[in-house]
Amino acid sequence: MPFALPGVFLSLLITGHTLNLISLIGSVMLVGIVVKNGIVLVDYTNLMRDRGLSLVQAVVVSGKSRLRPVLMTTLTTALAMIPLAMGVGEGAEIWQPMGVSIIGGLMFSTMITLVLIPVVYTLFGANRMRREKKRTAQMEDEMGL
């Protein structure tokens, strides 16, 4: 979620809109979409690890396999917000910041999600593997093996 906020602020700044209650409602809507995209990626990576792939192989396979669902979710939501962001019609200027904030936040957070989540997963996975090796070596030393 924190990765969506710079996109929201940047899109509002570029379009000349202010941060108001309606744009904050759009930011809250982003939480579900951004978190879902991250969960889809991590869950499939865990599944690949359970199936016996190495850490790097699991991250690469899950990145390739889950790229389309993540992009489809992002693009369909962003494209659906274009009429709202354009502000066409009577009273539409009230809802325009919501569309702008959702589109900007989605685009920014998706790019960050597709890059940052695999990197962080790999770093944490490598640390876990080191700890397990160290623990195994300590247990072997204690047992006199």
Score class of each variant (00 low, 15 high):
residue 103 I to E: 02
residue 120 V to Q: 11
residue 57 Q to R: 11
residue 103 I to L: 08
residue 65 S to Y: 10
residue 64 K to M: 11
residue 56 V to M: 14
residue 54 S to E: 13
residue 77 T to F: 02
residue 8 V to D: 00
residue 139 M to E: 15
residue 126 A to K: 10
residue 91 G to S: 05
residue 126 A to D: 15
residue 65 S to I: 06
residue 59 V to Y: 03
residue 141 D to C: 11
residue 109 S to F: 02
residue 18 T to L: 08
residue 7 G to E: 01
residue 66 R to K: 08
residue 90 E to G: 03
residue 59 V to L: 09
residue 76 T to M: 13
residue 69 P to N: 09
residue 7 G to A: 06
residue 90 E to L: 10
residue 47 L to K: 15
residue 72 M to F: 05
residue 53 L to A: 15
residue 82 I to M: 15
residue 86 M to Q: 09
residue 137 A to S: 10
residue 78 A to T: 10
residue 88 V to F: 09
residue 79 L to G: 10
residue 108 F to R: 03
residue 80 A to Y: 03
residue 83 P to M: 07
residue 92 A to M: 10
residue 137 A to F: 07
residue 131 R to N: 09
residue 144 G to V: 03
residue 127 N to P: 04
residue 22 I to Y: 00
residue 9 F to S: 01
residue 44 Y to G: 13
residue 32 G to F: 04
residue 86 M to H: 04
residue 13 L to H: 04
residue 120 V to M: 14
residue 43 D to A: 13
residue 34 V to M: 09
residue 83 P to T: 10
residue 55 L to R: 03
residue 138 Q to V: 07
residue 75 L to D: 11
residue 100 V to C: 07
residue 39 I to A: 11
residue 127 N to L: 15
residue 136 T to V: 06
residue 122 T to S: 12
residue 114 L to C: 14
residue 11 S to N: 08
residue 16 G to P: 04
residue 83 P to C: 08
residue 143 M to L: 14
residue 132 E to L: 05
residue 104 G to D: 02
residue 2 P to V: 03
residue 17 H to I: 01
residue 135 R to W: 09
residue 67 L to E: 11
residue 60 V to R: 08
residue 130 R to N: 13
residue 10 L to N: 00
residue 93 E to P: 03
residue 97 P to C: 05
residue 14 I to P: 00
residue 30 L to V: 00
residue 125 G to K: 06
residue 30 L to I: 02
residue 98 M to V: 00
residue 32 G to C: 12
residue 25 I to L: 14
residue 71 L to A: 14
residue 118 P to R: 07
residue 89 G to H: 10
residue 3 F to A: 03
residue 122 T to Q: 10
residue 85 A to K: 09
residue 67 L to H: 12
residue 88 V to W: 03
residue 74 T to P: 05
residue 65 S to Q: 14
residue 106 L to W: 00
residue 3 F to Y: 01
residue 21 L to S: 06
residue 52 G to L: 08
residue 73 T to H: 14
residue 49 R to W: 07
residue 86 M to Y: 05
residue 93 E to L: 04
residue 114 L to I: 12
residue 111 M to N: 14
residue 73 T to K: 13
residue 141 D to F: 11
